[in-house]
Design a protein around this nucleic acid. Structure first.
Lengths: 241, 241
DNA sequence: TATGGTTGTCTATATAAATAGACATTTAGG
DNA sequence: CCTAAATGTCTATTTATATAGACAACCATA
């Protein structure tokens, strides 16, 4: 496939996205480097300078590193896989795909439930809910940005518990909820917004996978509703049935 | 949030994407039309002409229609929901979200299995597989583009069966497979390629949701591997656990 | 029917993206 | 120690994107 002109997406960005995907797919694993700029220019049907813009963007992201005389070396090629199942848990899902896992609390607040949120959590409209803004990292790279809501009466200390443990599962356990189940997960995709770019260290124009997830306790009572955003070039979801 | 400059994504495209999303979210349901160009220009911090480019793109997609003197009317705002479960079926998944459902066979061929495909279908590398390229429509609007592979020895007449019925489930039934189950589904997101643009009648720069699905018969023997592409602004997936 | 609010069209200018070509610099390998 | 194969840098030109302003055309409604 050839790149699209006058599409509103600059050629260098289209090419950067495709090379990033190719790297994630392992297409260049044999050499450990990206093909020469001239070859890429020929492949995509563009000028070498356009390819250089694309590679410069990828270098900025830390995915490749150009070395004069040698070529453009691949520095990083992970694509994390997140299984989605009835027992979905963020840290366990990553498993051994990353050594270090981290959960940062960016913000916490208490607020009244909107009609949509109240219906999902089976609360009265306007009932108090706790909102947590979190950032998750794997091997020190940010992999998701999430907003989660919990019924305030039942989970009053959850912000502190999350801040200390960096894990929803651990925070639930600290409050006495030892088990929970995933009820449903909606998946959509959008362009990254400026908050994504800042928090997840992305380059503009990146694509985000968005999940809207509902968790409930073993009795089926909703305990958490969360909207999470993941960079699409770094993650994929797997639904096992 | 304000739009991002020099990001490799033209402002008019960013604005078109955000208005499209806002329409799908029902933000303008009260009036049935998009806010005036001048308001949008102020909201996004751009010139009115830039907003006009965005609206022109949406008009091209058939999402809005501008009427001089009145405003820009919303023509279409659906977002189809596809449940993913152990018993995922395309047509049943749409359910009553669309009246007319259609499945077109674009191309069919027999080819040897690549190592990746052979491993997924549990065949020998190079074993014959049948490949179907299909286009699915709901209410005459294209909603997905899929490539599906089947073991050739077991499903020799499936291309014809699909062409006649427009349904994988019906085609399987015609060959004697009355039931099958979804084993796994991987979900990723990418930019639309030129094939997507043509087949799915999209505007360049659109985002696609991509699923890679494996189906097996009740004994667990793989019967189909499929890669499907859906326009992200028209569909969402729901995983019910 | 007059008016305010809206989209349509035109011209002009500035900035960003892409192409084109030439040549320098660095590295790996014979 | 050459040479081929890479990336790095520079200048120039063309095309696409974005801004700016003015005014025409049209619609709803007071």
């Amino acid at each position: 496939m050839i790149v699209q002109r006058q599409s509103g997406v600059a050629l260098w960005r289209q090419i950067a996205d495709r090379i990033r995907t190719a790297i994630a797919n392992g297409d260049y694993d044999a050499t450990g480097k990206v093909p020469p700029e001239i070859s890429l220019a020929a492949e995509f049907g563009v000028n070498r300078h356009t390819v250089r813009s694309a590679l410069a963007a990828l270098a900025q992201e830390g995915i490749v590193r150009a070395v004069q005389g040698r070529g453009t070396l691949i520095e990083r090629k992970e694509r994390l896989n997140f299984p989605i199942s009835r027992r979905t848990r963020f840290s366990e899902g990553i498993g051994d795909q990353a050594k270090e896992k981290e959960g940062l609390l960016l913000a916490a607040s208490e607020e009244p439930a909107t009609p949509d949120l109240a219906s999902r959590l089976q609360l009265a409209v306007g009932a108090a809910v706790i909102r947590l803004e979190t950032l998750r990292k794997a091997d020190r790279r940010p992999v998701s940005r999430a907003t989660a809501w919990f019924p305030a009466d039942r989970f009053s200390g959850i912000a502190e518990a999350y801040r200390e443990s960096g894990s929803i599962t651990a925070a639930f356990a600290a409050i006495g909820l030892t088990d929970y189940l995933r009820v449903s997960t909606e998946v959509t995709a959008v362009h990254a917004d400026s908050g994504d770019l800042a928090d997840l260290e992305l380059s503009p124009g990146a694509i985000m996978l968005v999940t809207r997830a509902l968790n409930a306790d073993p009795d089926g009572v909703p305990v958490q509703y969360a909207i999470s955003r993941f960079p699409a070039d770094m993650v994929q979801f797997t639904i096992e049935n």
